Simulated assay, not measured.
Amino acid sequence: MEILIWAVCFNLVSVSVSNQFDPHVYPDVGPFFEGWYMRLIDFSTNNSYGLLFGHVLSIQSTNSSSPKVLASLLHRNHCIENNNTCKLYSSNVVCRSKDLNVTVRDAPVIKNPDDKSPPHFTWQTPFGLFTQTNNITTFHFDFGKYIFRGRIGQPVSWGPDGEGPEGWIDKLPFVPLHWFVFSLRSPVIQYELLNVQTGQLVGGTNGVVHMEKNWGNSFPKGWIWSQGVSRHNISFALSGGLVSLGEITTTQYLMGYRNLAKNLNLNYRPGNAMFSATHNGCGGLFEIKVYGLLHEIHLSASADLSTFSDCLYGPEITGFRQACIESYDAIINITVFKREFLSLKKIDTQIIKFSALEFGGKYTCNGQCQG
C-alpha cells in the first residue's frame, strides 16, 4: 500500500536513479510482492478515492489461504454533515495468480525498470485493468457493488530522471522494501464511481491524483504513511517505520514537501537528515521533526478516530492480510524553518485538510491489525 523502507545509511555512493513505476521481474521463489496505489482528490467536493492493487509471491512453505492477487477501493462514506468528516471504507476483490497478466510494452516482463525510460505497462485481471502509456493512466475496476474507472494526465515527478523518495538508497541490494512516488499530483482528466446497486454515479474532472508503488519482501512490522495536496500546488508525502536488517531493527523515515509559490522543493531521507517522531494509533496522532542541513520541518497530523477504516489489506510473506488503518480526513500542520546563523527563521506554514494518514502493523492501536 504505501510504504518506504530502506536501510541504515552507510557512506554515500554515486549511483544512478531510476523510474520504478514499471513492473519488476519476480524471483523464482518468494517472499516478494509488488503493488501500486493511487489516491484521487476531487477539489469540487473535497472527496477522495483510493485504488490499490498488487500480487504477492508467498514463501514456499506456507499453506495460507490469504489472497495472492488483490485490489481494493477506498472510499469515504457515512459522513457527518456539520464537519464534513467521513469514515473510510474498502471494497476488495481477489483472483488467482494464474489469472493475472502483467506486460511491459505489450510483452512479458523480462527485465527490471531502467533508469530513465517512462513507464509503459498493463496490469490486468478478470476484475480490473490499469494501464500507463505515454504518461497517461487509465483504469477500470469492477468491485461488484462499485465500478471505478477514469483517465489521469501527466505526472508531476518526485525528482528528475525518475528519482523517487529513496534517491540512491533504492540501489542498495540488501534493502527489504522499497517506496517509489511516480506522481505527486497528476491532473484528473475524468473519473467515475458507479454504485451498481443504486445506480448512483459520481465523477468529475477537477482534481489531482497521487500515484506510488511498493515492492520487496513484505510490509514491515510497524509503519506510518501520510500524503496530502492542496489546491495551491502544495503537496507532501512521507513514509517510515521499523526497518529490519537481519537481527537489527531501526526506525527511519522518508519525506518530501513542495510549495511552488515559495520555491520549496525539499526531500529528506537517511543520509541528509535526522528525524524525531512520535505516533499514537489509538489517538489518531502523529508528529515528526525533520532536521536537514539547510531547513527544518515540523509536521503534525491528526484525524478523528471515527474517520479511520477498519483493518485494510497489506502484503505479507503469506499473501495479503489485514494490516493497517487509514483516514482520508486527516489535518496536517506543516511549518518550515530555514537555518540561519545560530537561529531558525520560519519561512512557511501550511494546513492541508483532507489528507491521508495510515497506521500499520504494530503502529495500529494496540496492534489491532498485526494478523
Score class of each variant (00 low, 15 high):
residue 341 F to H: 10
residue 51 L to E: 06
residue 349 T to M: 10
residue 220 P to D: 03
residue 197 Q to D: 12
residue 69 V to L: 09
residue 282 C to A: 07
residue 167 G to A: 11
residue 328 Y to P: 00
residue 43 F to P: 01
residue 57 L to Y: 00
residue 270 P to Y: 10
residue 140 H to T: 09
residue 248 I to Y: 13
residue 75 H to N: 05
residue 25 V to S: 08
residue 132 Q to D: 15
residue 31 P to I: 02
residue 212 E to R: 09
residue 343 S to R: 15
residue 49 Y to C: 09
residue 223 W to T: 06
residue 9 C to H: 12
residue 15 V to Q: 12
residue 107 A to F: 10
residue 267 N to P: 00
residue 234 I to P: 01
residue 334 I to Q: 10
residue 357 L to W: 00
residue 24 H to P: 00
residue 263 N to R: 08
residue 258 R to G: 01
residue 39 R to H: 13
residue 291 Y to M: 14
residue 118 P to K: 13
residue 81 E to K: 03
residue 110 I to S: 12
residue 281 G to T: 03
residue 301 A to S: 10
residue 13 V to M: 13
residue 285 L to P: 00
residue 52 L to D: 05
residue 134 N to A: 15
residue 63 N to F: 10
residue 299 L to H: 11
residue 263 N to I: 01
residue 98 K to L: 08
residue 272 N to D: 13
residue 200 Q to N: 11
residue 135 N to V: 11
residue 89 Y to C: 08
residue 212 E to W: 09
residue 40 L to Q: 04
residue 166 E to G: 12
residue 32 F to K: 03
residue 326 E to S: 02
residue 65 S to K: 09
residue 191 Y to V: 08
residue 353 K to Y: 05
residue 225 W to L: 05
residue 161 D to Y: 15
residue 312 L to G: 03
residue 134 N to V: 10
residue 21 F to A: 10
residue 238 L to G: 02
residue 364 T to I: 09
residue 288 I to G: 02
residue 132 Q to F: 14
residue 88 L to Y: 02
residue 324 C to G: 02
residue 358 E to R: 00
residue 144 G to Q: 11
residue 91 S to E: 14
residue 54 G to F: 01
residue 330 A to S: 11
residue 257 Y to N: 01
residue 89 Y to T: 02
residue 168 W to Q: 07
residue 34 E to W: 13
residue 371 G to R: 07
residue 275 F to R: 06
residue 188 V to L: 06
residue 256 G to Q: 06
residue 324 C to M: 07
residue 170 D to A: 12
residue 192 E to H: 08
residue 70 L to T: 10
residue 306 S to Y: 00
residue 203 G to A: 09
residue 268 Y to G: 01
residue 114 D to Y: 06
residue 207 G to M: 12
residue 170 D to N: 15
residue 26 Y to L: 12
residue 77 N to Y: 01
residue 233 N to R: 11
residue 213 K to Y: 06
residue 62 T to E: 08
residue 217 N to A: 06
residue 294 L to M: 13
residue 222 G to P: 04
residue 361 G to T: 12
residue 127 F to T: 05
residue 326 E to I: 00
residue 283 G to A: 12
residue 146 Y to P: 03
residue 316 E to V: 04
residue 292 G to I: 04
residue 246 G to C: 07
residue 19 N to W: 06
residue 346 K to Q: 14
residue 17 V to A: 13
residue 336 V to G: 02
